[in-house]
Amino acid sequence: MTLVPLLSVRDLSVRFLLPGGRRVDVVSDASFDVAPGECLALIGESGCGKSVLASALLGLLPANARTAGHAHLGDLDLLTADERTLARAVRGRRIGLVPQSPAAHLTPVRTIRSHIEETVARLTGVRGRAARRKAAEQASLRAEFPLGHLDRHPHELSGGLAQRAATALALVGDAPLLLADEPTTGLDRDLVDRTVDELRRHVDDGHALLMITHDLAAAERIADRVAVMYAGRIVELADADAFFGSPGPRHPYSRGLLEALPERSFTPVPGLPPELGNLPAGCAFAPRCDRATDACAALPPFENTVACHHPVPADTSHAIRTPEDTRA
């Protein structure tokens, strides 16, 4: 991508300090860019640190978290910005959040209309009841939320409609960066496709979208680029076409993840991911990897598009172990 990135994350690490002096490295050295008009899908299994990464970008980490690195949104470093700035100028205005569980994100005692109107009043300059009502209805339409359901309470909505209500809220402030945290969880395939296409439309309108998901089909449908996260590290960052099509993923984990899809071979990656509190010194995937060798005892550097000592080559069929692989 030659575009100027809107969000530029460099060496972002998040660690939690637990009682008893334990440390859990949830995110380690994540680096990526997201440009306007581009969607980056961050994929990985639950517990790999992708949701924590999103919380770090929004400044919503708990008090026992420590961060390192940078996350520049324009000229602002999201990791060092104070809560006041984040609350008043960033969340909603520069980053719109499409949440993971919309049912929990909405206040149960208020109607969807009052949610949206309140957000309109907070984030935009719209004054007056009628104008606000109109703006709220426009926001709902943009998220394909049926106007007939605006006066319902969150518990009266199906999962899909609640998701759209939450999307409508995220779109109100017209933030340049959208952050979607598992926006399709629990939705059926048609609704996933529609939600994703809707988000894609906002990308094509010039928004930047960072979508965190474990749904590979949704990622394939929407993403320009894909970042694969494993045990807190980004192990592969590739163009979506190359990743999902030909030549396919290069990291053995990404390859295994794709192969596990029911439309492919439907075989799981053997074993379980490692504990984030007890990561091996070397490649975290090595114990589950059929390509692993002694070289994997060292942490693989991120080179080109992949962090692996033995990536599946883009063109040749077998990787050859070279002495360089064993350097620390």
Partner: peptide, 14 residues
């Protein structure tokens, strides 16, 4: 398997 990633889905179905 609605909340799970592809690999865990395949593992549990197996």
């Amino acid at each position: 398997t609605a909340m799970l990633d592809a690999s865990t889905t395949a593992a549990l179905v197996r």
